[in-house]
Design a protein around this nucleic acid. Sequence first.
DNA 1: CAGGGGGCTAAGG
DNA 2: GCCTTAGCCCCCT
Length: 101
Amino acid sequence: MDHDQKQTAILQQVCSVPKGNVASYGDIAKGAGLPGYARYVGRVLKMLPKNTNVPWHRIINSQGMISFPKGSDTYKKQVERLNQEGIYLLKDKIPKSYFIR
DNA sequence: CAGGGGGCTAAGG
DNA sequence: GCCTTAGCCCCCT
């Protein structure tokens, strides 16, 4: 399996997360058939263009927290996008009830 | 090759 | 809750 296929599989998994729900990097990797590729997922999402239709904001870490420095532009951006689909943080964390199950 | 660093994770103090 | 350790993927200098 080459790089492109992994990337495609990952992005496809990301796009499969319904609006109003979230998933962890590890979950995405797992669902893409690539257990252990959590960090790889983050690396892939990092290079997406601004205008992408891929819902990168629905991907968070296993602790339910946003994996950006709190207060950074990207952090705010992600929070805004989540709020826009009815997802709200509690003490900087996203409640478990939003996770895909 | 060595070292450092990322949108990570699970386990232990 | 915090921090460290070890393990995971990869990339860059």
